[in-house]
């Protein structure tokens, strides 16, 4: 059983309300696309789901393997890709993946890392410093970071930003695979990415909502 439930979730930065009374329920296999203008709270919603900040009011609950988790507790089951997620530039791609596997307590082999890098279009670049990666390659490595532990919940903020056509196709594959494993939530401004979703959540800037 995999389920994500939001109940009347609100978030604000100081006096400014960013999200207000967001409620939904997602089951295994679901893909939710959160759409809206800049400043409408898409990234904030994903940060709440990742446990990187707490909602002002309301609750977020993950039901994973028949146990309830808060977003912070669910961190081992989450994969997060976002423009503000940075990996260690002075380490190689392989060293980054090894490091994050070790701190997550995963057992891994060199061939598993190579397979993941190949799958994400980074074959032969595993021993290059991340500092020498292009922005598109860095985005692909973010996917490697998010997918290596096979997360039950995948949170994608601007999933195809900086990616070329092949990269965008790769994201479509990642989302298709995630349907078999768990839940995906995508935040995007790109109308072409609406096709990924079973459900669309349209957010409008809080100021407009208040009117």
């Amino acid at each position: 059983m995999i389920q994500l439930t939001l109940t009347e979730v609100a978030a604000s930065y100081g006096p400014r309300l960013v999200l207000n009374a967001i409620s939904f329920n997602l089951q295994k296999g679901a893909v939710l696309v959160v759409q809206g203008q800049n400043g409408s709270g898409k990234s904030t919603l994903l940060r709440l789901l990742a446990g990187l900040q707490k909602p002002t009011t309301g609750t977020i609950n993950y039901l994973l393997q028949d146990t309830n988790f808060t977003p912070r507790e669910a961190a081992p089951f989450l994969g997060w890709v976002a423009p503000d997620l940075m990996l260690y530039r002075e380490l190689t791609a392989r060293e980054n993946l090894k490091f994050f596997a070790q701190v997550r307590g995963l057992t891994y082999s060199k061939s598993e890392i190579d397979a993941l890098l190949t799958k994400l279009g980074l074959a032969g670049r595993g021993d290059d410093w991340v500092a020498h990666f292009s922005s598109g390659m860095t985005q692909r490595l973010r996917y490697a970071y998010a997918l290596f532990h096979q997360p039950l919940i995948l949170l994608l903020d601007e999933p195809t930003v900086t990616l070329d056509e092949k990269g965008a196709a790769l994201v479509a594959n990642v989302i298709a695979e995630q349907r078999q494993r768990g839940i995906t939530v995508i935040a995007t401004n790109d109308p072409t990415e609406l096709r990924f979703g079973d459900y669309i959540l349209e957010l409008s800037p809080a100021v407009e909502r208040a009117r």
Binding site: L52, A75, L78, W80, Y88, F100, V103
Partner: peptide, 16 residues
């Protein structure tokens, strides 16, 4: 400063 704290926060146990 290098904005790697979020990746670390999500992956590693705090005490570690």
């Amino acid at each position: 400063e290098r904005r790697t704290a979020l990746a670390l926060l999500l992956a590693a146990p705090s005490i570690a």
